[in-house]
Design a protein around this nucleic acid. Structure first.
Lengths: 171, 171
DNA sequence: TGGATTACGAAAACTGTTTTCATTATTGAA
DNA sequence: TTCAATAATGAAAACAGTTTTCGTAATCCA
């Protein structure tokens, strides 16, 4: 299994590339480059993990408090349309957006205690799915696999939980 | 792979069993048996597939037009709490409920053309997931796997699509 | 630099779901 | 049975997350 490390610092090179790709998309579509969109995407691409609109808005407001959530929503839709970002839903009712990923496709493990979302990729799993689809006369475009459970490392899990509670307190 | 057949008629015996199980649950909880709840659950258990609140309400209203959606929502929650029904979300924003299933756990294949939702189960897939979780020091409580794509049998797929369109027209 | 066009922000609208509240039904005990 | 006590109902309001509207402001190309 490939477990995807999400604790390394964000690669500035890659961010710049993504920003350029988005700028190209905007141009191709005949849309306009705006200060707000730039703020939103550069904030987004420098954040890690599975980001909710709320979380993004908080960061964006630090750079420019006048930016409203309508613009954040609109920009996220554009990011999704551009193919640079994926929208995901993990059943808590809110959309989460994901931009940086070491590998293209991956699945998720979600800890129900501390909320940690780990990414992983396994070719055997992919192959097995393909063969099942084949058997069923079905052609897969995409799939979603989520494992819900708990971390076995209780100490680390508890620490994350505390940290999360503290952050919620502060907000 | 086990592909689960969802075209066989609903087994009356099984429905009666589920109704009895729900009645027992109601009693155990100290809740009351009502005409509305009986209508809703017996309608639900006689429907097949992955039923949305809307779809259920339509059927329920045929038996008793005075039943409102608040009661349908409330009853579905009770069904979920009783363990007789599972709630699922396939990303179109609405909850779907599933009561009858030949096997306990199963995964889904969803056709993006005709909307067909097929259920399947494969022990190798389950085992592989367990081993991946093990590797990652994670304990799985439950999981969700959904394959999105299209039916390879274009004729059957198209027929279902037509049928669906006709039904939407009629409603 | 002008003028067409697109984007913005605030607020209203929307969707699916949950809650409230006054009224009605069910229940177990007398 | 009848009587409270309690739970359930239905209509409407509230709710959360998201999308749309609308008047104003910014962008961009000629």
């Amino acid at each position: 299994m490939v477990t995807i490390n999400t604790n390394t610092p964000v690669d500035e090179e890659l961010v710049k590339e993504k920003e350029a790709a988005f700028a190209a998309f905007i141009q191709r579509r005949g849309l306009k480059t705006t200060r707000q969109r730039n703020t939103i995407i550069s904030t987004f691409f420098r954040m890690r993990g599975h980001i909710s609109v709320e979380e993004l808005l908080v960061q964006v407001k630090k750079a420019n408090p006048r930016i409203g959530y309508a613009t954040v929503y609109r920009t996220l839709h554009l990011l999704v349309e551009s193919g640079l970002v994926e929208e995901r839903r993990f059943g808590d009712g809110l959309a989460r957006y994901e931009g940086h990923s070491a590998v293209e496709h991956h699945d998720h493990m979600i800890c129900l205690e501390c909320g940690l979302i780990s990414e992983f990729y396994n070719p055997r799993l992919e192959a097995l799915q393909e063969s099942l689809a084949e058997e069923n006369n079905f052609e897969i475009y995409r799939h979603r696999l989520e494992l819900y459970g708990v971390c076995k490392d209780k100490a680390a899990c508890e620490a994350r939980k505390q940290q999360k509670a503290a952050r919620a307190q502060g907000a």
